[in-house]
Design a protein around this nucleic acid. Sequence first.
DNA 1: ACCAAGTTTA
Length: 713
Amino acid sequence: MMRIPANFRYLGISLGPCLFSFASNYDSSKAFVKSLGCFLGLMNYAQLSGPNHKLLFSDHLRNRSVDEAREVFDCIPNPNVYLYSMMISGYARNRRLDDALKLFDEMPVRDTVSWNSMMKGCLECGDLSKAKEIFDEMPRRNIVSWTTMVHGLMLSGEVEMAELLFREMPTRDVAAWNSMIHGYFSNGRVEDAINLFEVMPCRNVISWTSVIGGLDQNGKSDEALFLFQKMIGSGFKPTSTTLVCALTASANLLALNLGVKIHGQIVKLGFCFDEFLSASLITFYANCKQVENSCKVFKEKLHKNVAVWTALVTGFSLNGKPENALEVFRDMMKLGVLPNQSSFTSALNASCGLEALDRGKEIHSAAIKLGLGTDVFVGNSLVVMYSKCGNISDGIAMFMRTDQKNIVSWNSAIMGCAQHGFGMSTLTLFSQMMRRGIEPDEITFTGLLSACSHSGMLQKGRGFFKFFSEAESFEVKREHYACMVDVLGRCGRLEEAEDLVRNMPFEANSMVWLALLGACRNHCNLDAAERAAKKIFDLEPNCSAAYVLLSNIYASANRWSDVSRIRMTMKHNSIVKQPGSSWVTLKGFRHEFLSGDRSHPLSGKIYQKLDWLGVKLKEFGYVPDQKFALHDVEAEQKEEMLSYHSERLAIAFFLVSTPEGSIIRVMKNLRVCGDCHCAIKLIAKIVGREIILRDSSRFHHFRNGICSCWDYW
DNA sequence: ACCAAGTTTA
């Protein structure tokens, strides 16, 4: 940092030309540029004259241009304690603790405020011990010093120390009580917080807001909303922060009516243009499945705030509108709103929903450009995106590249490998994870069982189930039983699977029975199938998957009267089979092969296939070079597609296959066709990157998804 | 002027 020599500090504008000579005395051009900047600073300082330099100074600080602020600061003759404190806080807010401490040391005089600012600065930069040092060293403490320290201790999780200090404080104002309440909540000590709130001598709107926000963040949104209403009832006027907390709680509870009322209050109180409130409103409406209203809120003004944009991206994505989500994300970047890790997470999620590898890659490159390529949140989303889009090797590469991997990183990689049928890789990942001392959680467990099921690892599956059932800190859930049933079922241990279901410590849900029914279908066990189906229909009379599975079982047993009986029942109860669907980007893989190695022996074959596909799709009224959702292809057309010879059948299989169980049947048909096993292997290897099956849920994914085919090669 | 509450995240 360059400081202007002392004699130049008093020059002001009247000596403007001298400044040029001052600048030209500097040899290096860098120094010239710097001094020119400083000259401009001086110009501003002089032009604005009087106290206005403070305005310029605080403008820079507000804009987080801390270096510019420092240049103005350096031009101010004899800066007072107040300006020093401002500059110190400015450095701290920009995480430049060293500069802040240096300036603090240089201060000619220090008052309590400057000591407090320095202490606060240390806390903001996460240096608790330095803050403690300053707290001990400062000559006089006021109530603010104590409160700052209490708050800092609480945020570092040193609750006991904070309590001690709070008791030792000579006097306690409402801010001190509030910081204790907030501190308890952020350490998950809900009871203590509430007790304090009840005994505190005097409450203000911040006290109420802290409790409302704290309850909501600790999973007690209902109590939060109750207190919000109580607060309004006792005549307190909510601030925008209060309304944000109440809205967030309403969003979590899906309390549509209350949320809409709060929206009314926001308009009435004139908080319409508060960015925090806009973001909360967007999330609230999106959670309540009213994403059109989120859009309305968004369009009320032009937003520059990342969180507002991200809220809308997330909203669209979670409401099954990934196209819109990605459009918003693109607009956001076009407008120069820099996406952060949350925005990337939401956008990558949306591309998972579309299963659009090209879009995902686009977002990935944007993340790299912004320096977020190895961020743990972004990295985890990338792992999921690549593996969901069929590209597990890139998914694993992303995992390796992620900084500071957490449990979600490991789980995403494990899930990805498991779903792609890489059983051994899954096990290796798991042992690496254990060796690094990372505690597995229930999602890890699901991933492991899924791997065992897809790779036919019966003994491993049993071992994991035993291990996790015996682990104390662990709750084995219905999902895990469903997975285990799947493991046993796929390995033909139908009896054992049924025993497991009947001896579960809690009532089995339809998901568990459905896993059993699926197993029965694969092993043509009609008796067990009928038992399982009966259970499912008791629990969920309109379960379309169960009807379809059962009718397929009857069909394989040549019991056609039963098949038509089930079809009739379905029709009668207007149960519609959820269509399976797949996305095809013709352009995507055409491009891939055009830009790739054209001399490769496969290029020609792929070209033929693409041409055939293009012709077929045109016949069905689709335009090439677009994304096709083939779930709406008519049944006869599907059959027509399937009637082509084996290689074409293989492609058709990818296009029209339905997740709910038909894959294995189609596989059987393919085998009957002769050479298709080889053909499908070939095509899947090449085309699998771009054609991805969509599944109704994560859970069905590994049970019925494309991964099933991997078992066969 | 220094202390207390808030939006988006796998």
